[in-house]
């Protein structure tokens, strides 16, 4: 299988995927450190989920629309979202697309077809279905991806979206990044059935992939993506991957997790993927080291630079509630920051 990838001239694609994994890991570590230093307010780390996300997004095209969730920074980086967009959101500064209104990790980049992340989990899934409906009705190219964690599989929104996508036979990939935990609740206490198996109940294909291995995820998801692209209907992909850190910077995972996958260990998806790429002769140890160093330098410089960007101006508190300010908002704006 790996031979085939090389023969198909996909070496570049694999290198780019791995490069995005490295970049995402570097940025993730940087943000976690910065949060501990008091430079960033909050974060939901993404370490451990890079291979799963990028293994899938290696199949995606720029016209595809993604309803990502709050741990999908690696996929965004891989799909070309500039690091600055992400860092500005993490700081919530005046250059942030969302004008500092959302907590860090709630990323968006409309120009790159990444939609906005809500905190209530799975609530984007029905939106993905509607967006796919519009795609088909308007005869637009592209498919829709809706990603979520294992906890989301318990929600009414998951059920509604899976059922609706199947009933209307829509081009949606439901992508479950199962990191084994919903904050503190292990998956086996979340559901009695393996998540990928739920697909059958809704009338769509479902598969399980090893989300710790980018190449494996990439190869195993190919057919599913093609199925959706051909207009055959939705699919459910469950990618198992580790959550290598806390749920967020606000919790201590040692309270509920005894077996945390350590960075650099042989269960770290970055290590697993790197090892395979070296074995396949696609990269060398030296190339991987160089990638890490370059990422480190790049991220550090962008992170420090963008920290200087000022916070959003006070007036922005009152913008974008409606297309035009209502009298109520104008009045309240006047009370709080003074009139124009």
């Amino acid at each position: 299988m790996s031979e085939e990838i090389i023969e198909h001239g996909e070496k570049e694609r694999l290198i780019r995927g791995f490069g995005a994994m490295v970049l995402a890991r570097t940025l993730d570590n940087k943000i976690m450190t910065a949060q501990r230093q008091g430079r960033v307010g909050f974060f939901t780390p993404t370490s451990g989920q890079e291979a799963a996300q990028i293994g899938l997004s290696m199949h995606l095209r720029k016209e595809d629309i993604i309803y990502q969730y709050y741990r999908d920074m690696p996929m965004m980086l891989h799909m070309g979202v500039p690091v600055d967009i992400i860092i500005n959101q993490i700081y919530g500064n005046s250059s942030d697309i969302a004008k500092g209104r959302q907590m860090p990790s709630h990323l968006l980049a409309r120009n790159y077809n990444f939609m906005s992340v809500p905190s209530p989990v799975a609530t984007n899934l029905p939106l993905a279905v509607g967006t796919a409906y519009a795609n088909r009705y308007l005869k637009k190219q592209g498919i829709v991806v809706a990603s979520f964690g294992d906890g989301s599989s318990s929600t009414p929104d998951f059920h509604a979206a899976m059922n609706l996508a199947a009933v209307y036979n829509l081009p949606v990939i439901f992508f479950c990044e199962n990191n084994g935990l919903a904050i503190s609740l292990p998956t086996e206490k979340q559901t009695k059935v393996e998540i990928w198996k739920k697909a059958e109940a809704y009338g769509m294909p479902g598969i399980l992939v090893n989300g710790s291995d980018m190449i494996d995820t990439y190869e195993k998801t190919r057919e599913m993506v093609e199925y959706v692209r051909e207009g055959k209907g939705p699919v459910l992909i469950e990618a198992r991957c580790p959550r290598m850190g806390p749920h967020s910077t606000s919790d201590d995972p040692t309270k509920y997790l005894t077996d945390i996958v350590k960075e650099g260990s042989d269960r770290d998806p970055l290590v697993i993927t790197q090892k395979r790429l070296i074995e396949m002769g696609i990269i060398t140890e030296q190339v991987a080291t160089k990638m890490r160093e370059d990422s480190q330098n790049f991220i550090t410089s962008r992170f420090d630079e963008l920290e200087k960007v000022p916070p959003p101006s006070p007036e922005t508190l009152f913008d974008d509630v409606y297309d035009e300010h209502t009298w109520i908002i104008d009045e309240e704006r006047g009370d709080i920051i003074g009139r124009n």
Partner: peptide, 26 residues
């Protein structure tokens, strides 16, 4: 039927789908 959808019985799905349609040009 493509423009007037008899939906399954799921209010949050009806509203959620409508939001997703609106975002994408409908």
């Amino acid at each position: 039927e493509e423009r007037v959808l008899d939906t399954p019985l799921v209010e949050l799905g009806i509203v959620g789908m409508a939001i997703g349609m609106s975002i994408n040009g409908l």
